[in-house]
Amino acid sequence: MTFPENTKTFAGRPVVELESGEPLPPVQGPVAWRFGFWEEDFGTDYGPCQAYNEALDELLDGIDTEAVHALVLGSWGYAAFADAPIVKLCDVAHRLPNLEALFLGDIEAEECEISWIRQGDLTPLLEAYPKLRVLRVRGADGLALRPTRHANLRELAFESGGLPADVVRGVLGSDFPALEHLEFWLGVANYGGDVTVRDLEPLLNNNPFPALRRLGLCNSEIAERIAAALAGAPVVGRLTELDLSMGVLDDAGAEALLTGQPLTHLRRLSLRHNFLSPEFAARIAAELPGVDVDVEEQQEETQWGRYTAISE
């Protein structure tokens, strides 16, 4: 699985492209504005892309920034060599006073592989945008998050081919009283994904987020162990949606999940893009008749083993 094109919707809104120096185009209803700037600069010393920062300034000078409620940022130069514009976003926070939703890294595979995308410490970003309700981040090279508090954040998602355990610990050590949706693409060890079930235990057993209803533990090479832990995890009883898609779950792992605590209270269970047999996939759907069970795109193990949907 790759990202062949940019996202078309974000935070429940259609995405509309912005051009530097141009006014906001006329639209009907709420939209998410998108801005990207790709520059093939292979001589950089790994830092902010100055040309991108200048282009973003030019863009903000030409639009009504108070009308921007949702923002999708694509490439910031060449994202494998240029740091994510977190510092720049903090510097211009006063110009985006109504920003509620941010996607940092809507980057196609042709522009930069997901595990090459350079991120940074997200903590100042959350501090700079107190109205933020949705934050989605793609890429995990250099990604960090220190324990923090944010009163309004409702959706937090990390798309990665390998998520550092320190990021998970930072999230689970934070105070997000409004958080309803949490999504981790855990990835693989070869690309920095060193999260263990023990790292997830504060979430599974104690759940520091009282409003949490939708949980994704996706794209994981330890999906079997996660499924076994979820079978008895108290957090499951409070969820309406559970997403274990894009991993390496087989019939044995799904059996552990299915024979654990009841799952009939869920509205949706996604096991999409795993390694279930057709017979077991049909059994899960039959045993959870009131649940929207997604078992599409099941994979077949090769002679080299099973692989997550996203790695490099």
Rank of each mutant, 00 (worst) to 15 (best):
G170E: 11
N206M: 05
A233C: 13
D199V: 04
V168I: 00
T196F: 07
D251T: 11
L200K: 00
G216V: 13
P208E: 10
Q261C: 08
D251S: 10
V188L: 11
P202E: 12
N219E: 01
A229D: 03
T240F: 04
L258A: 07
N207F: 00
D199W: 06
E180M: 01
R225A: 14
A223E: 12
T240K: 13
E221W: 01
E241G: 02
G232R: 14
T196K: 08
A227W: 04
M246T: 07
G187K: 04
T240N: 12
N206G: 05
A227H: 08
G187E: 00
L186E: 09
R238M: 12
R238T: 15
L242T: 10
A229W: 09
L215D: 04
G173A: 03
G193S: 09
L203V: 13
A227Y: 10
D250Y: 05
Y191V: 05
L186T: 02
E255H: 13
N190Y: 06
E180T: 02
C218T: 14
A227Q: 08
V188R: 12
G193E: 06
V171K: 03
L215F: 01
C218R: 15
G260S: 02
N207C: 09
L244N: 09
L230Y: 02
N190P: 03
N190A: 14
L239W: 01
E201T: 15
L212C: 04
V188T: 13
E241D: 10
V195L: 02
L244P: 10
V195R: 04
R198G: 11
L179W: 05
G253A: 11
I222T: 03
G232L: 13
D194L: 10
F209H: 15
F184R: 15
A233I: 13
I222F: 00
N219V: 00
E183A: 07
Q261W: 00
